[in-house]
Design a binder for these strands. Structure first.
Length: 564
RNA sequence: UGCCCGAUGGUGUAAUGGCAACACAUCUGGUUUUGGUCCAGACAUUCUAGGUUCGAGUCCUAGUCGGGUAACCA
């Protein structure tokens, strides 16, 4: 190792690096990503996925996918399938796939072993009694009345638990540790509970199910995991993790905890995300407003952008909140390089060019992506009637407004200079048409007489434009911290009503009629959009706005407008 | 009311006892046929108080603040 080439590693990579250097685990690195299949993966899981799979890649090791399916009542194969899909979409492939339920028999045998060694006992207490006997932070616990049952009695009772002789909640198997420990997890934790429920994989084969602590470390051990990375809330479980593995005298993985991802204006709690889906507040787990991986995918985020984000947020032990702006940066950065530029007019208003011959059209040739020389060119039809963005015209405009005004001149992107002569409105005073003239001498966007124009606006030919529905997405919560709910309010009251705004009458350039589901584009001056993978049809296009472009103009406007 | 963990700019991270670095955000300016991109610049008494040291963001002590934790969930 060259000291001068010391790279900046996060504390986990540092630790793994040290372990490898010291020959721990024969220099092996083996991680695992262990989701419970009770919901869809979200961006927080992406951080964990990038960490675990990244560790394996960087240290020449392996990473398993393990479904932590020890709670039959909440888990389902739908979630198993979506988890596999999401991990692969992110660009990772696991070395081996397991289920905690693969180990139910082994875990059972191990439990028998602990019973025989007097380290576990069958307890008859109810949930309430257990809580009472556990004591508190300030007061010691009391032993369960059944704590000193004989080995024979425990063996008999436990096998009868397994055989279904008892009802749910009637008995548990508990580890005999220390009812006086400072760490509540060590006050005789439950190892097994009775659940007469059908498991998504083992069916009705079992009616006793191992608790997390009894299953997790041993599963890690069986798979020869070297570094068992998890989030901070499991920190005080580590002594129990270590105790079980120590008792069983099997391969001992090292648990390491890091801070989970928190993003501003975003709800990450799996329970609450489930509530949004079940309660119909969103269309489903893959609703583009959701912080799920499938939601981001449908919204138009790329795997590259999410991996880039995960790498930028860092791995530490302190709780922090990452600004949602960083996500936006990551996706803009990637899409700016790869997304073809097209024109989409979200809120169209008609322009009639009075001095352009009726019924005539011409093709304008234009680049596909200024960031990519190899992207080539495309042709766009131009004619007498166009659609432009309603917000690109103002009757009474402030001085800094560089767009179209009455009497003012702007450039039509990739075409001509345009001047507005007259505004036509309907009875409600709504602008329905702008009568304009163009300067044929400015083809190519420059005037022979050298006169300059401040603004350039986008347009589509009215005769060629394709209708589209465009869904504009924004942050799901207006509050930076949506878990901070004001008195008397429900967290769902904080949902941003403008998280989705649908533009029904958008007009897009004809080339987009052939776009396929999932394709991403930059709508020039508007943002990045993708073809919705569920609702878009050949005759009825639907686009999702992935993210806006940075917008200095609207930012300036929000500041209260310029004093000219 | 114990036990465990943490604290570096508005935000997220780096600095492995030796010049507080990078990115985001914000603001200024330049380039530009996208108010995009790109380029240049601005933006910190490292929670507090003591101590060790030639030298402390880093080590020690005490405090302050924040988080986690008492499921037959994971």
């Amino acid at each position: 190792m060259n000291e001068s080439e010391h790279k900046s590693l996060d504390f986990i990579r540092q630790r793994v690096s040290d372990d490898v250097a010291n020959g721990k685990n024969e220099g092996r690195v083996h991680t695992r990503f262990p989701p419970e299949p009770n919901g869809y993966l979200h961006i927080g899981h992406a951080k964990s996925i990038c960490l675990n799979f990244g560790l394996a890649e960087e240290f020449g090791g392996k990473c398993n996918l393990r479904f932590d399916d020890t709670n039959p009542e909440k888990e389902d194969t739908e979630f198993v399938d979506s988890i596999r899909e999401d991990i692969r979409w992110l660009g990772f492939e696991w070395d081996a796939e397991f289920f905690a339920s693969d180990y139910f028999e082994k875990l059972y045998q191990w439990a028998l072993e602990l019973i025989k060694r007097g380290k576990a006992y069958v307890c008859d207490q109810t949930v309430e009694e257990v809580r009472e006997y556990r004591g508190g932070w300030d007061k010691p616990g009391k032993n369960s009345p059944q704590r000193d049952r004989t080995v024979e009695e425990n063996l008999d009772l436990f096998s009868r638990m397994k055989n279904g002789e008892f009802k749910d909640g009637e008995k548990t198997l508990r580890a005999k540790i220390d009812m006086n420990s400072d760490n509540m997890n060590l006050r005789d934790p439950a190892m097994y509970r009775i659940r007469h429920a059908t498991h998504h994989r083992t069916g009705d084969q079992w009616c006793i199910y191992p608790n997390y602590d009894w299953a997790h470390g041993q599963s890690d051990s069986i798979e020869s995991i070297t570094h068992s990375v998890c989030t901070l809330e499991f920190e005080q479980h580590r002594p129990l993790y270590d105790w079980y593995i120590g008792q069983l005298e099997v391969h001992h993985p090292q648990q390491i905890e890091f801070a989970k991802l928190v993003i501003s204006n975003t709800m990450m709690s799996k329970r609450k995300l489930t509530e949004l889906v079940v309660g119909g507040f969103v269309e489903g787990w893959d609703d583009p407003r959701m912080p799920t991986i499938s939601g981001f995918r449908r919204r138009g985020f790329t795997p590259e952008s999410i991996r880039s984000f995960a790498n930028r947020v860092g791995i530490t032990k302190h709780n922090s909140t990452t600004d949602i702006a960083l996500m936006n940066l990551c996706i803009r950065e990637h899409l700016n390089r790869i997304a073809p530029r097209v024109t989409g007019v979200l809120d169209p208003v008609k322009v009639v060019i009075e001095n352009y011959p009726e019924g005539e059209f011409e093709m304008r040739v234009t680049g596909v992506n200024p960031e990519d020389e190899n992207a080539g060119t495309r042709e766009v039809p131009f004619g007498r009637e166009l659609y432009i963005e309603r917000s690109d015209f103002m009757e009474e405009a402030p001085k800094k407004f560089f767009r179209l005004t009455v009497g003012g001149e702007v450039r039509l992107r990739n075409a001509f200079f345009l001047k507005c002569n007259e505004v036509i409105k309907d009875e409600q005073g709504e602008i329905v048409e702008l009568r304009c003239t163009y300067d044929p001498e400015t083809s190519g966007g420059k005037a022979p007489d050298g006169r300059k124009v401040k603004g350039t606006i986008h347009w589509v030919s009215a005769a060629h434009a394709v209708d589209a529905e465009v869904r504009l997405y924004d942050v799901m919560f207006e509050n930076e911290d949506p878990s901070d709910v004001p008195e008397g309010k429900d967290w769902k009251d904080l949902i941003n009503p403008n998280a989705l705004v649908v533009m029904q009458n958008a007009k897009v350039e004809p080339i987009l009629a052939d776009a396929s589901a999932g394709d991403s584009f930059q709508f020039v001056r508007n943002g990045y959009f993708c073809v919705d993978s569920k609702d878009s049809q050949p005759g009825k296009l639907v686009f999702n706005r992935t993210v806006t472009l940075k917008d200095a103009w609207s930012k300036q406007q929000k500041k209260g407008g310029s004093p000219n």
